[in-house]
């Protein structure tokens, strides 16, 4: 197992390196620079700024200098927030985003898993059609539509929940988490329904019934584990999607998270900030994919044996 984990971590290095390289050169190719603005800047000042941030060096040298910093864990100074490093900015934005992501994932797994399992127990009945139709709507509806709709309904019309903020008023975390998690809950509902239907038709479920176990034990003891493996395998990619999607939700609900910094950095051509956030997020995504693979292996003894040998 440790060999498998170490192998996967080693494989991650070229992936992350490729992400860095592509991002590094792409942001440079994009028109405009960090110190271009509508106001004319005195050429001497601009030159001095560029020298300070090593922008006057040839591109190749800048690239290797960046890699050297990165090896020491330094993501460099931000171009737009003078005096603050990218490390500090990420550390400032991360807690809110991580918390939002975690709650959204929880919403997705609990709501989605439950809906999928319930639907699978009586296929092609109301118990199946209703949650699956809701899931279909969830998949189709974009976050930027769902968020304002929820705000309108629960925040303004019913006045049950606050419309914005993060950690200021009790209950203000509910709507953002729901908004972000909804599409994933819908997707997980479909995955777990399909997984459960497949497992429930297996011969070993018949064996469990022949033992005289009541149906709920057949489902919880024998079916759930196999049925939810596809969901576990999806958690890694889902996490990536949640991070990417958090920007929209953070904007709608005025949450001081990483996503907003990230997008603002792109508008500002804040090279180091874009790169730093990209490196950080891609590392997280690789780690979470690994984590979901490990979890899937832990659930499946056959896979466990394979990884154990590898």
């Amino acid at each position: 197992m440790w060999r498998f984990i170490a192998g996967r971590l080693l494989q991650a290095i070229p992936v992350i390196l490729a992400v860095i390289t592509v991002t590094f050169f792409l942001v440079r190719v994009a028109p405009g620079g960090p110190f271009d603005s509508e106001k004319a800047v005195i050429p001497e000042v601009k030159a001095a700024l560029e020298a300070q941030y090593r922008l006057d060096l040839p591109l190749g040298q800048q690239y290797f200098a960046y890699l050297q910093d990165l090896a020491r864990g330094e993501l460099g100074p931000s171009f737009k927030y003078p005096g603050r490093s990218v490390n500090e900015l990420i550390a400032a934005g991360l807690p809110a985003t991580a918390e939002l992501g975690a709650y959204a994932l929880l919403v997705a797994v609990v709501l989605g898993g439950l809906a999928g399992v319930v639907a699978s127990l009586k296929p092609n009945s109301a118990q199946d059609y209703i949650p699956m139709s809701v899931a279909m709507i969830g998949i189709c509806m974009p976050t930027f539509l769902l968020g304002p709709l929820l705000v309108l309904l629960f925040g303004i019309h019913l006045e049950w929940l606050p419309v914005a903020g993060w950690g200021d008023i009790p209950g203000d975390k509910i709507l953002p988490s729901l908004t972000l998690g909804a599409a994933y809950a819908a997707y997980i509902a479909r995955l777990s329904r399909a997984g459960m239907l497949e497992v429930m038709s297996q011969d070993y479920i018949r064996t469990a019934r022949a033992k005289g176990l009541p149906e709920w034990q057949v489902v919880t003891r024998h079916a759930l584990r196999g049925g939810l493996i596809p969901v576990v395998a999806f958690l890694g990619p889902a996490f990536a999607g949640l991070l990417a999607g958090s920007f929209v939700v953070e904007t709608i609900f005025q949450i001081p998270g990483l996503g907003r910094f990230y997008v603002q950095a792109a508008f500002n051509r804040d090279y180091t900030m874009i790169l730093g956030t990209t490196v950080f997020l891609s590392t997280l995504i690789v780690l979470f994919n690994l984590l979901s693979d490990i979890l899937a292996a832990w659930l499946n003894p056959r896979l466990r044996a394979q990884y154990g040998e590898a």
């Binding site: 011969d203 070993y204 018949r206 022949a210 196999g226």
Partner: peptide, 18 residues
Amino acid sequence: GRDIAMIFQDPMTCLNPY
């Protein structure tokens, strides 16, 4: 499973792999 028990055809698929 108590008074009447069953054995099935394919022992490869009739035991829970998990």
